Simulated scan of single mutants.
Amino acid sequence: MKLVDIDNLEPGQLLGRTLFSENGTVLLSAGVQLTVFMISTLRRLGVPMVYISEPGAPEIQLDEVLSEQTKQAVISQMSATFNALRSGKEFSARAISLSVDQLMDDVLRNQNVLVQLSDIRTADNALYLHSMNVCMMATMVGANMGFNMLQLKELAIGALLHDIGKLGATGPEEGRTHHAWRGFELLKLKREYSLLTAHVAFQHHEAPDGSGEPRGISGEEIHAYAKITAVANIYDNLVHGAGELPRLQPHEAIERLHALSDTTLDREILIEFLKIVSVYPNGVSVRLSNRLIGIVVAQHRGLPGRPIVRVIAREGESSAARELDLARLPTLFIEAVIN
């Protein structure tokens, strides 16, 4: 499996990852042979890159934290929740809770898997996939930090619904128009949820140095749940180029996170977050410091920046295929990601 820019796709190639619609149904299944029409549709939907399977080539395993069934369930429930809010109706707190339970089961079962955000994102499903990814990453961080099940559930629900204020009504007091205020006002009324869950939506744009929004609180005034969600939120936005942000490769996004440490992001939380993400995801083409060209094929849980690379060429020429484990080769490093 290889990560390919949408402009480099060709008819006949096999799609490597399933494409979900905004309500969680499958639009294109993994393994389908792409046609000119399908490629045109992907481009129209705003898809920047996709994973492609290469027949005859050694398969690259893309380990996932969440199963396809869990992704469908969460996306479907987020669609139902946000559509209810758009219509001015109440959403089901119990249904959200059940979806979060399913997601937490996957996270706890796959704690040794590094996060590789590989799902195909479109204009229609972007908000739901973003919410799911932030929830998944926040839950992984919380689990690594030793949170108990009650704490994990509070964090997971808050992270999944951190942007719910983008759909809610304006806050009751003048000036409370920021979506963090609106999210807090919506969630604090849900008696099924802890007030700490509402504070995730309330505080996920606050910053340790007091420069955040909507209240400009700082340091320990910001709850740990919100600090964790803030890191996951920014990382997912950077990797997918949300809003006016340019789309960054994971290693570039991680560099950006480092630059935000102690100002926008909590340093200790950031250290924990960097333990769960893959710096160079499987399927990415890279150039090594010895001029060899290869594809990342496997990860090391404790060394996310030192993956296993399958060599396919030397720069400017061909080369015999072999695998190099960068964890065992300390003088060899990844020099660049090749788009």
Results as ranks from 00 to 15, higher is better:
Val4Met: 11
Asp5Cys: 01
Asp5Lys: 15
Glu10Tyr: 08
Pro11Asp: 06
Leu15Cys: 01
Thr18Pro: 10
Leu19Arg: 11
Glu22Pro: 02
Asn23Lys: 10
Gly24Ser: 01
Val26His: 09
Leu27Asp: 05
Leu28Glu: 00
Ser29Asn: 14
Ala30Gly: 03
Ala30Phe: 00
Gly31His: 05
Phe37Ser: 12
Met38Pro: 03
Thr41Asp: 15
Leu42Asp: 12
Pro48Arg: 02
Gly56Leu: 02
Glu59Ser: 15
Asp63Glu: 06
Glu64Arg: 14
Leu66Ser: 03
Lys71Cys: 11
Lys71Ala: 02
Ile75Met: 07
Ala80Thr: 04
Gly88Thr: 13
Lys89Ala: 14
Lys89Cys: 06
Arg94Pro: 04
Arg109Ala: 13
Gln111Glu: 11
Leu114Asp: 03
Val115Leu: 06
His130Ile: 05
Ser131Arg: 11
Met137Arg: 13
Ala138Val: 04
Met145Gly: 06
Phe147Ser: 10
Leu152Glu: 13
Glu154Thr: 10
Leu161Met: 12
Ala169Asp: 08
Gly175Trp: 00
Thr177Asp: 05
Ala180Tyr: 01
Phe184Ile: 08
Glu185Trp: 07
Lys188Gln: 14
Leu189Pro: 04
Lys190Ala: 06
Tyr193Lys: 00
His199Trp: 09
Val200Lys: 08
His204Lys: 06
His204Glu: 03
Ser211Leu: 03
Arg215Val: 00
Ala226Pro: 02
Ile228His: 07
Ile234Phe: 13
Pro246Arg: 01
Arg247Trp: 08
Leu248Pro: 07
Pro250Gln: 09
Glu252Thr: 02
Glu252Asp: 15
His258Arg: 15
Leu260Asp: 07
Asp262Gln: 11
Ile269Val: 15
Leu274Asp: 05
Lys275Arg: 12
Lys275Phe: 10
Val279Asp: 01
Ser285Gln: 11
Arg287Asn: 02
Arg287Gly: 05
Ser289Pro: 08
Gly294Pro: 08
Ala298Arg: 11
Leu303Phe: 14
Gly305Ile: 00
Gly305Gln: 10
Arg306His: 11
Arg306Lys: 13
Pro307Asp: 03
Arg310Pro: 07
Arg314Asp: 05
Ala321Val: 12
Arg322Tyr: 04
Glu323Leu: 09
Leu329Thr: 04
Pro330Met: 00
Leu332Ile: 15
Ile334His: 00
